[in-house]
């Protein structure tokens, strides 16, 4: 059956070993993690994991059930098909020879990014957006020579019903 990409938002106990239980579940059962981000929520005992995964509908169903079965998992929400806001951030360290510096700044500007570090022959650019937007920036900066990239993975929250834009 067709593989589908799913965006999961998982609330878990903020305890040592919990992330390992989750990643262990994925590696042990051969599921895929495309991206993963974890941080504490307003409740200090609770963390939110935002995960992008893919698989056939049967596998996705199993992934959600298996996650729910873990004792430290509080709630699994599949945001796919819901209204949600999604962001990823990337730091891109790019070669910046004199003849390219203006172009890099322009591209950064178009994507509403920021230069967060600058040197004689490099810029580090910060961009935020959905993964497609970040891919676009990376593709445009590639010809200049990208030295290093760090991406956060997606974070997402569902929109509130009715009064959310």
């Amino acid at each position: 059956m067709d593989e589908q990409r799913h965006l999961l938002s998982i609330l878990v106990d903020n305890e040592p070993g919990v992330l390992s239980r989750i990643t262990g579940l994925f590696s042990g059962r051969g599921y895929n993690i495309d991206s993963l981000s974890v941080a504490e929520t307003v409740e200090p005992h609770v963390s939110r994991i935002t995960m992008v995964t893919h698989g056939s509908p049967g596998i996705i169903e199993q992934i959600k059930k298996q996650l729910n079965k873990l004792i430290n998992v509080i709630k699994v929400t599949d945001l796919t098909g819901m209204h949600y806001v999604l962001r990823e951030m990337a730091l891109i360290k790019v070669n910046a020879k004199t003849e390219h510096r203006a172009e890099i700044l322009r591209i950064t500007d178009i994507f509403r990014g920021q230069v967060v570090d600058v040197g004689i022959d490099h810029f580090t650019v910060k961009v935020t957006g959905d993964p497609e937007k970040i891919e676009a920036v990376i593709n445009l900066l590639k010809p200049m020579g990208i030295r290093e990239i760090a991406r956060t993975g997606c974070v997402a929250l569902p929109r509130e019903n009715g009064n959310s834009h």
């Binding site: 070993g17 390992s20 239980r21 042990g28 004792i71």
Partner: peptide, 14 residues
Amino acid sequence: IVGITRPCTKHNYL
């Protein structure tokens, strides 16, 4: 042992 038995226990504690 908590790490080793994570995938073969219902749950475990240190």
